[in-house]
């Protein structure tokens, strides 16, 4: 048998291989031509499923896909380290134009409080989308019926009150520490139980692990409506429309804290890629679905992009660094 002659099986395999290679090459070239943007976007959430950041990502996923702005949006949860786990992941994906990350107050705080080597300089911040607020809540059967009761308990024995909230440096954590200082105690005495998502914070409260929970309003909304959780105060400067919770200012504390949410992209993008992704954020906030989400979750529209956003980010970083330093928590 001629050793160069193909057996029938080999010939068949060769034909199939040629066809598959052709198809694969066509797909590879096509996918490369799309430049990785427009068809599929991966959204990294630097927190566990079911929290504030997660909600932003999943609402964006819905709005983007429904309006055909992208074909597929995949949400990936990467909780931990005050958001620095997700941040480090995105910082390592240099040049990926199909990657977005949800970011906000909590990431800035998380970076400063952990002394993370990876900072916002290592990713590409794109835009601010909306503002959210933090709620201080207790179980319905708790003896604490108002923020004044909590202030009294805190002033008497700060360590005895177990407070559950999001990761270190999040708006939850900063608000708890600021409020404790506001009632005249040492913020170093805060007994704070760290969770990586709002859902876990709620469970911690309901399972009697924590006495007080600090988290975004939406984490508690269903339980507040059902009468199982009582909100003591909200961190907004003015009362929220349609939400019957006193602000911290009304409770007598000189304190408010907005928890803004935004989007960032991977580092190392060229101007065209960056503009395309920033445009995607702009298109997102204009969709009917997104406006509906903002209404439903009680957020405030706060879109900001470009140079204004860069300025805001620098200011916000200074402000939060000052707060954390003032609390004695700067790494």
């Amino acid at each position: 048998m001629n050793r160069f002659a193909l057996s029938r099986r080999e010939a068949l395999a060769g034909v199939i291989a040629a066809a598959a290679l052709g198809g694969g090459a066509w797909e590879a070239a096509g996918s490369a031509a799309r430049g990785g943007v427009g068809s599929r976007v991966e959204v990294v959430v630097p927190a566990a499923a079911g929290g504030g950041f997660d909600t932003v990502a999943r609402q964006a996923q819905h709005a983007l896909q429904t309006n055909g702005l992208t074909r597929t949006v995949e949400v990936v949860n990467m909780p931990g380290g005050g958001g620095t786990v997700g941040l480090s992941h995105v910082a390592g994906q240099t040049g990926r134009a199909d990657l977005l990350m949800v970011m906000g107050t909590s990431i800035l705080g998380g970076v400063r409080i952990t002394g993370s080597a990876v900072t916002l300089d290592d990713i590409t911040p794109l835009a601010r989308l909306a503002e959210d607020y933090v709620v201080v809540a207790v179980r319905a059967d708790s003896p604490l019926t108002s923020f004044a009761d909590l202030a009294e308990r805190w002033a008497a024995d700060p360590r005895a009150v177990a407070v559950a909230g999001g990761a270190v440096g999040t708006a939850d954590h900063l608000l708890a520490a600021l409020a404790l200082r506001g009632v005249g105690a040492d913020p170093a005495d805060l007994t704070y139980i760290v969770y990586s998502g709002d859902g876990e914070v709620l469970t911690s409260l309901l399972s009697h692990t924590a006495d007080v929970a600090v988290s975004s309003y939406n984490g508690f909304a269903a339980q507040i409506d059902a009468g199982e959780v009582r909100a003591l105060a909200v961190s907004a400067a003015r009362p929220l429309p349609g939400v019957d919770i006193p602000t911290l200012r009304e409770a007598g504390l000189d304190l408010d804290l907005a928890n803004w949410r935004g989007l960032a992209a991977a580092p190392g993008l060229d101007a065209g890629q960056r503009d395309r992704l920033a445009g995607l954020a702009q298109d997102l906030v204009a969709t009917e679905e997104w406006r509906e989400s903002v209404r439903r979750f009680g957020w405030e529209d706060a879109f900001l992009a470009g140079a204004d956003f860069a300025d805001f980010l620098a200011e916000e970083d200074d402000r939060l660094t000052g707060i954390i330093d003032g609390l004695g928590l700067l790494a």
Binding site: E10, A19, A20
Partner: peptide, 11 residues
């Protein structure tokens, strides 16, 4: 040939 076919299909 099998290798090339599989790589193409995976792609």
């Amino acid at each position: 040939f099998v290798a090339a076919a599989l790589a193409g299909v995976v792609q």
